[in-house]
Design a protein around this nucleic acid. Sequence first.
DNA 1: CTGAAAGCGCTTACAG
DNA 2: CTGAAAGCGCTTACAG
Lengths: 339, 339
Amino acid sequence: MKRPTIADVAQRAGVSKGAVSYALNGQPGVSEATRQRIIAIAREMGFNPSSAARALSGASANAVGLALCRPARTLGIEPFFMELISGLEGELSARSYGLMLQVVSDQETEIAVYRRWWGERRVDGVFVCDLRIDDRRVSALKELALPAVVIGGPGHTGGLASVWSDDAGAIVEVVEYLAALGHRRIARVGGLNGLLHTETRSEAFEAACRRLGLDQCVTVPSDFTGEDGARATRRLLSSGRRPTAAIYDNDVMAIAGLAVAQEMGLAVPGDLSIVAWDDSPLCKLVHPPLTALSRDIPAYGAHAARLLLAAIEGQPIGAAQDQTAHLTPRGSTAPPRRA
Amino acid sequence: MKRPTIADVAQRAGVSKGAVSYALNGQPGVSEATRQRIIAIAREMGFNPSSAARALSGASANAVGLALCRPARTLGIEPFFMELISGLEGELSARSYGLMLQVVSDQETEIAVYRRWWGERRVDGVFVCDLRIDDRRVSALKELALPAVVIGGPGHTGGLASVWSDDAGAIVEVVEYLAALGHRRIARVGGLNGLLHTETRSEAFEAACRRLGLDQCVTVPSDFTGEDGARATRRLLSSGRRPTAAIYDNDVMAIAGLAVAQEMGLAVPGDLSIVAWDDSPLCKLVHPPLTALSRDIPAYGAHAARLLLAAIEGQPIGAAQDQTAHLTPRGSTAPPRRA
DNA sequence: CTGAAAGCGCTTACAG
DNA sequence: CTGAAAGCGCTTACAG
């Protein structure tokens, strides 16, 4: 059987197409009895209104977009994005919104994708990840007047709606914890320079170390890949006075760091304490399990989705703060062994 | 400025809407000079044809769908899916096809999603993952006449198009390799029972062991999570005559297995050799790095995307074999230490 | 409460 | 080679 249209349902019910539309969309204009009858017939016929036709009439695409700007290799390995996506998804599909996904190679392409999606009326709004300082996407989105929610911040969103998590507060908690354990030399393997959250963490890390009088702390940048995390760790552990604790900006690098320590014959946590940012199940799989900064990423995504849907409805949305990551101590942190 | 429509372009160019359509879609019906002029004007105005209007006229949604039926936690941690998606994506976006993504909790929901997508004309075709034996989705898809490519096999696709990889051949290579190293007691931590590829691997594993006279080989099932992989490993390593080598059906479980061995004071590869199925970057991050069955997952995805696009065009597509995974030996395998 | 009609933005035969 | 028109499947004022 062909896919039924609203006309088929109307004919079968002996009413006009308009009546079917009203009945199915919960609009006034049909009696309750007629509505129920129409709904029953539509269900029985397996009728689904054409999203194209609805979009053309109602101007709403009933879909939102997510463009991911990371190379395939990094994307695959970082649990963060899939968890985020499943969070977005749960909220979206509950309201029968679709999610369009596209992997892009750079910001210019990403902007072009937004432009095309919006021009094609394929999406009603988009999510923006990996916010940068002076992010060109922000101005492009405002120019397009495309509803958007930035996943990141605080600030630098140019007035776009956003959800953010207090990274600065979280890293302070970690530094204070390590300091309390007795660590004086703490290294941090940071994320990509230029990303707002990397900068936020770097500043907060430095300030916290200064405040606690830890004058031998250092941040080395990385590209988030395990390889780079391993390389950075090797360098740090080969230096004259090596750190006794290391904080990694994602879980993958933390795991790579753990492997490097083992490879160099150092005990974790005896010779090196390790803290991972983002607590995916990976952290519990290695030996010792990694102390990590945990937060509910799917919930973060769901939060973002609710905001975007509200923004699409025209509600004025500002910056919403999500849960702050909290420290989950496991076997990879301990007081430093006496030198 | 509002999003321009084809009428705006036509007016600006001083031609009919039909002419603009012909020019932009490379159809005959306009002179080359006019075509070029129209194209230039459309570009300058930033015109993108409404996908809804196109879909309504042309009957093609220019999008395909992927429903993922795994809990959020497993999805996030398995590099496989993100790599697959980026492979699909590359091929799709090159032909400006969109990808609709939805996370579902079970097969019935997945079928309902297919039904809705197709009814709404949101997608022109779908990808099917995690093929099962007697998979209800296969018959549902055939009933809907929704173009589909099954990512998996061989067989059990009910005549739907498919891409598959020779898992049986790959596992034979592993077993022969381990046997050549001198292993006699090989364990396998398999994937979810009921998944076709799990069954395929299990049978091939058993047959290979029998052929080589390894009569103490065993497969234990798991749910693909690291936790379950760890649990299975603990059980295997606690048994009277513990295996000297273990094969894991995904990389996450292999890593969990490695941690369990370390936790129990066993040396890898001295006391236990480990082989991971699916060689993500994770395998190279741990110490020792894991011997793995490698294949190009993004290429696998791209292959699937090409097939689906061809199927949508009405070409008859059968079962296409993709690259077989090959063994990449690393530090986690060696001859068993003399008992 | 219901029906007939216009309109969304395209594509595609069909005349000129 | 070009223009005018129908039609895709909906939604939504507008009359009855």
